[in-house]
Amino acid sequence: MSDVFTEERANTLVQDYGGTPPPIGAGPSDPGNGGRQDSSGKSHANAILAMALFLGADVMFFAGLIGAFVVFRFGALHWPPPGQPLLPLGITGINTGILLISGAFMVKTWQNIDRWPHKKITKALTLTTLLGMTFLLVQGYEWFRLVAFGFKLTSGTFGGTFYTLIGCHALHVMGAVLWLATVTVRLARNRLDQQQRNTSIALIGMYWTLVVALWPILYGLVYWN
């Protein structure tokens, strides 16, 4: 290590620390409008990244709840605890299928967004929304029966984890279905230009994919014994 500054060393330093700017992949430069009324490509990229980050945080939130559930479930001698109902495995299994099909529609639409005609996209999104609603209705009916059986939020750690975990997921589905419905309606009424349409579908597509992908994990953990 010599600190004598030779020409050769200067050139390597300039390569390491200076020189002409290399191209930046993800970040084209800001065109000079405060990032506010941004060029559409940029705001699309920002929105997608932000959604991905939000989903990361959401996963950590569920990880906290799932962690709690795992501690109780695998720490217990008997699960479900004596006197607590067995959860409706079959009907929820069918419900799982419904949600997965809905997710498949979403992903297909998302993938073919530039290929499918407008009508087909609208149709596929409508189906996705309806299947999501069906999932919610079936689950609501199940909850109704469980509560009637006497299985409540206060039924020990089983009831507590069941209703918070599944309830949080249900809230996510509810929010997603509302959002999906809004996008679908605006699409049907032709209220979105192509860029807006692509961004909205990509965002709801990401969100819906997470909500759908979480469900089989919850189903496997919570319902199966």
Partner: peptide
Amino acid sequence: ARYYHGNNT
């Protein structure tokens, strides 16, 4: 000051 960027060793 020395124009020195560090030493990996």
